[in-house]
């Protein structure tokens, strides 16, 4: 994407869509856990991007899309339970371990998965942007329009509440 390209050109718009649509979709999904809603909001966001194509330089498209979708959640949208699955690409390190260990690990994984669904929207979004999307705190702060300090706080809270929930399960 060269900075001179204009989003108003259909080919450029399509390029922007291809490069960003999945990321934006996941971002919405982390927030609400509703696939249909994620579809709707992604569509809305890109339609708005097209309508504002003349005013939005291509390098601003990403933050534009995040802002639009982030703002869509300001009016507390009721959310479903976020359901995540194991990545297929995850290296299977646990193969060499004992069956007992494997079972325990599997249980642990399931607990993490479930506990994430119970995090608050703010904590979960920050946490998953960091963990799954591999974004640094600075980026997350920018995308969510909050301070780095706030991201740090959300991460700490997310991790400790995950741990609490998992350990409660154990008990």
């Amino acid at each position: 994407m060269s900075p001179n390209e204009n989003i108003c050109h259909e080919s450029t718009f399509q390029k922007v869509y291809t490069s960003l649509n999945k990321e934006i979709w996941r971002f919405i999904y982390y927030k609400c856990g509703d696939e249909a809603q994620a579809d709707d909001l992604v569509q809305d966001a890109f339609i708005k991007l097209w309508q504002n194509c003349a005013k939005t330089p291509i390098e601003k498209a990403k933050s534009f899309l995040y802002t639009i979708t982030n703002n869509a959640f300001l009016n507390e949208i009721a959310h479903k339970k976020v359901v995540l699955k194991y990545s297929k690409s995850q290296p299977d390190k646990i193969n060499s371990e004992s069956p007992q260990y494997i079972l325990e690990e599997k249980e642990f994984h399931d607990k993490v998965q479930r506990a994430i669904g119970n995090l608050t929207e703010g904590q979960r979004t920050a946490f998953l942007l960091n963990r799954i999307e591999g974004k640094k705190y600075v980026e997350i702060a920018e995308l969510l329009d909050i301070s780095v300090k706030a991201v740090e706080k959300r991460m700490s809270q997310a991790l400790s509440s995950l741990r609490n929930e998992i350990e409660n399960f154990k008990a």
Binding site: Q14, Y17, T18, N21, K22, W25, R26, Y29, Y30, E35, A38, D39, V42, Q43, F46, I47, W50, V83, L84, K85, Y86, S87, Q90, F108, H109, V112, Q113, I116, F127, L128, R131, I132, G134, L159, S160, L162, R163, I166, E167
Partner: peptide, 27 residues
């Protein structure tokens, strides 16, 4: 150690696949 473990496991998760092409058609 537990926190790290949780964090590592979380990294291995992924969101469902979005219906990218259908969405583009709608757009």
């Amino acid at each position: 150690n537990t926190l790290i473990k949780i964090a590592v496991i979380s990294s291995g998760l992924e969101a469902p696949e979005s219906n990218s092409e259908a969405n583009f058609k709608t757009i």
